[in-house]
Design a protein around this nucleic acid. Structure first.
Lengths: 254, 254
DNA sequence: ACGGTCTGTTTCCCATATAGAAACGGGATA
DNA sequence: TATCCCGTTTCTATATGGGAAACAGACCGT
């Protein structure tokens, strides 16, 4: 199904960059014929998956894609199980709670409940984040398949994101090891300056973490003391979700 | 682009029904060859747009579709403009605020901010709702292209949804006319028993409403008096958003 | 255990839809 | 008004996707 696959490669660009995209730039970037890109995009448009700005003629994500994507949440067991516990966690801590998963070395927040202590709106559900710049990524590697970390370091490296992003492989391995030992990881302004996060793993009975549960805070608020204070509530919530997901036990906190 | 279009028809089923779908049932429902459906679905799967349950072998929405869909919100001007005002509205009223649009006679909630007075989780962002069973649909028809109502009544009718859904065409026309006169509409348990909503139009400078702003409440709370009490805040918020969207004036409230 | 009957997947081949090159048309810019 | 750039359309050879049927594997009730 070559035609469909290449059409999806085009669509992927809209998943990665959230900005209007034109035929020519997509054709160049992907090395596909302009005429072909145009036909693919107009078909997506005619079916509601893309929307074409009538003035600029550029394309952006359409309503059907939106409706489809939201069914991920609705049909997803993880989401159904996590939401109620997350709400409690947010009430208790005041911070925003977020559940994240990893695919192909990218982390994505699948579910968030906003807290009172509001960060800025730029960390958002549904955005792909680099694996090495998020607390969720560190935890997922610490509790993921053992060769995954090596593989990612080799194929992706540790690209610069912000001034605080870890770009040294030794250091990153240490951070992941510590996460495995302690059962949590922190990132401080490594994805987005001013925004920090604290994450713990979620298990479903399989040996590896399926997701993480995290709290997002303004960077200046997430001191080590505050992290210590938040950790028990976070772990309690993670245990609750994990047990409901089918895990026999939750190995951290009590 | 026939192949892609038919692949998207298959994908549409996942946008409409949020449940695992199998090859055979899709092939039958859409009148497409089983082998073809299988190839299409596996291609979507290989590209992350669908996920295949390893046990049941059925397919459901995948992470890439989720990421793509969320970019609708991120790249959408309506969302960016509305969110801050919605947060204030929720703080003021306690109810959940929601922005909805219509496409092809179906209403979809594109954005919601949860309130303290919590309804149940079954009204959800990203789900298609019938035009006649929501306050948003009534408002969008009242302030939409004039022939749209006739067209929808002729082609779609007023199917039964709940015991309270309006199924009489005269009555529905009256409700829409009243919405046009008053600048708001209400639905009480017409989509989902126990859940009511109050909606007003949003304008962007074009003659027709582009979206609605609504408040979702538990049905027993949305008395006529409560609606009267909520309306000024709702209209103030709608005016704020409309002006920022490019409307010259907002014709209701003050 | 064992057919029978559901799944989802693979194979095969021919008709046809598709990718590609180039031409077209329409806005913007100068 | 002429030039540029962009999205769309045209045209044709060829690769490719769609259809029929065979395959494989899980599940069922004997």
């Amino acid at each position: 199904m070559k035609a469909l696959a290449s059409a999806l490669r085009i669509l992927d660009e809209f998943a990665l960059r959230n900005e209007p995209l034109g035929v020519t730039e997509l054709a160049e970037r992907l090395g596909i014929q302009k005429s072909n890109v145009s036909k693919v995009l107009s078909t997506f448009r005619d079916n509601g998956y893309l929307y074409q700005d009538p003035i600029t003629k550029k394309y952006l994500v359409g309503l059907n894609a939106f409706a489809l994507g939201n069914n991920y949440i609705n049909s997803n067991r993880l989401s159904r199980v996590s939401l109620p516990s997350m709400r409690k966690l947010v009430d208790d801590t005041g911070h925003s709670a977020v559940v994240s998963v990893m695919q192909g070395g990218d982390v994505i927040h699948v579910l968030a409940v906003e807290g009172r202590l509001f960060v800025d709106g730029r960390w958002r559900v549904g955005l792909w984040m680099p694996y090495h710049a998020t607390s969720a990524g560190k935890v997922l590697l610490a509790f993921g398949a053992p060769n995954q970390l090596d593989y990612l370091l080799k194929t992706r490296g540790l690209p610069y994101v912000t001034a605080k992003t870890i770009t040294d492989q030794r250091k990153f391995r240490n951070v992941v090891q510590k996460a495995e030992k302690n059962g949590f990881a922190i990132s401080r302004g490594e994805t987005l300056p001013g925004s920090s996060a604290l994450a713990v793993p979620l298990f479903d009975g399989s040996p590896f973490a399926v997701a993480t549960l995290g709290l997002i805070c303004p960077e200046h608020l997430l001191t080590d003391e505050e992290a210590d204070r938040l950790l028990p509530a976070l772990q309690k919530c993670a245990r609750e979700i994990s047990l409901r997901l089918g895990a026999g036990t939750y190995p951290f906190g009590h």
